[in-house]
Design a protein around this nucleic acid. Structure first.
Lengths: 287, 287
DNA sequence: AGAGGTTACGGGCAGCGTAAGGATC
DNA sequence: GATCCTTACGCTGCCCGTAACCTCT
């Protein structure tokens, strides 16, 4: 009986299939089968009932699952309390929404590589809805998105809000929302819906809203005078100094964007836990 | 980090030396060194301070020891509750005093091999003092002896007392303890000392006592008329029926012999625990 | 035919024992 | 020199991935 056998057993038990576990663990499917067979042979006990559409735990498999989870609880404690961070290796999959990618994500990744010098990072920048989906599908280890994610298996660490301001092309003069398009976030995002709702309530159904999945494309459109829009104050710096855009005040602001660092709690994920902390530090440092 | 690395670490920590652990584990000494080095490399943490006369735990080593012990607690639970007995293999070292070897030990070994068909047994028959010493030196996994062993690390399971009766050669007539040697157990055993004390108290210092480390030699001497002696009633059967010896009653009897099945509790020894139970069953069955 | 799992087989690597090499008393 | 641990070095055996096979829908 080895750790790897038990870990494999747990993933197969959790995901209900050899194939699914093999994908989760970046392993060939026969390798997972072999590990299970080896474990069953080591204990001389049948752990799964095989059926054509997957596997289910036997009574003894259920019992073993409890014990195996206890083992990995202790295992994670060892990693947290004793293992030096430089011993942690493998790939850590981070998902971030673009706002974060454009602000403190570099600082976060720098801290990460400093604390975990042997850990490689796989970064995906996407809209929060997709990040949420990827996290729940275990395609990500940590998601930095507009949260929180309401799911019993997800832990959400609140990150500092991102304040928005209105921006327009420099020297554009008074803004008429009835005539000027508002350039906003991608559809299917919470700030987009909130912005559209606020605009309609204030200026009626005549308001035009452009949406863009790219934050930098948005600010370029604003700079080009195509429209105006709310934009994270802290991102405006360069173009503001270059005199391409300027801030204006229509008398109201969309709500600040609230972000979370979110990760699955299920496999007692101490690495993701610590990385969420690092993200919080990095995000707080910028302000 | 593997189970074997952790197990090796624990033994080195407990015994305070690589060499001692290697003996305990039936492993070459470099193999133990290599396992420790591999563990330290896996955690990227120094676990031992090496000194010329052994090793001592570092602060982090101390912490790991606690976690490792938790791991093996769970590990033992898995063995107890889930592992099929036929999966248990290796060598189980049993020590037994001769009285037991001559009575229910065969029954015990039969039950043992039935429940653990892949377990091989290493049997040592010796006097209880030596068995005690071997057990404490971890040279035995289970000792069936005149117990209990008063040591905080030893668990003693009481076994049924063995009743004694006086025997002499058939047709010898009235026994005069002043003239007839008493053939008894080996020196350095509790029943020997108790017998000598009782004889002196009753018949004065003139009584002669022969001691023998072999129970079957004793009964042969009795049958040959060399002397008389107390002897487990249940062992007398064959020679009694053959008319070689006969029981007699001098009006008193030595106290029954009290036995225990004893094992070390330290490494949460569930196998020894179960085997002690089997021993109790085997011993009780005979009566 | 396709989805899910097992069996067959060759190659790479981890871990063992033997033997030699420090270091400290 | 004795004791204790580490380094060096073949060798074996385990475990992985590829590929073929089995079995239900």
């Amino acid at each position: 009986m080895t750790f790897e056998q038990l870990r494999t057993f747990l993933w197969v038990a959790r995901l209900g299939g050899v194939r699914r576990a093999s994908e989760q663990m970046n392993l060939s499917q026969p390798a997972v089968s072999a590990r299970l067979a080896a474990l069953e042979d080591a204990l001389k006990v049948r752990l799964f009932e095989r059926s054509p559409r997957g596997v289910t735990l036997t009574r003894q498999g259920e019992m073993l699952k409890d014990y195996a989870e206890q083992m990995f609880f202790v295992h994670e404690e060892i990693r947290r309390r004793i293992t030096h961070p430089s011993a942690i290796e493998g790939t850590f999959r981070v998902g971030a929404s673009e706002t974060i990618a454009q602000t403190w994500l570099p600082g976060f990744l720098e801290r990460l590589s400093l604390e975990y010098p042997r850990l490689s990072v796989e970064l995906s920048v996407d809209i929060s809805v997709n990040l949420r989906e990827s996290l729940l599908a275990r395609k990500l280890d940590l998601a930095l998105l507009m949260g929180p994610i309401s799911d019993y298996s997800v832990v959400n660490i609140a990150l500092p809000d991102v304040e928005l301001s209105w921006f327009q092309a420099a020297g554009r003069g008074q803004v008429d929302f009835a005539a000027t398009p508002v350039i906003s976030y991608a559809r299917n995002t919470r700030p987009y819906r909130e912005l559209v709702e606020a605009l309609f309530r204030r200026y009626g159904p005549g308001v035009r809203v452009y949406s863009s999945t790219s934050l930098s494309a948005s600010i370029q459109m604003i700079a080009a005078g195509i429209g105006v829009g709310p934009y994270p104050s802290m991102l405006a710096g360069e173009r503001l100094r270059a005199g391409q855009i300027e801030q204006f005040d229509p008398g109201w602001l969309p709500r600040p964007l609230s972000f979370t660092a979110s990760y699955l709690s299920e496999p007692r994920n101490s690495l993701a836990e610590r990385c969420a902390d690092i993200a919080l530090e990095a995000a707080s440092q910028v302000r």
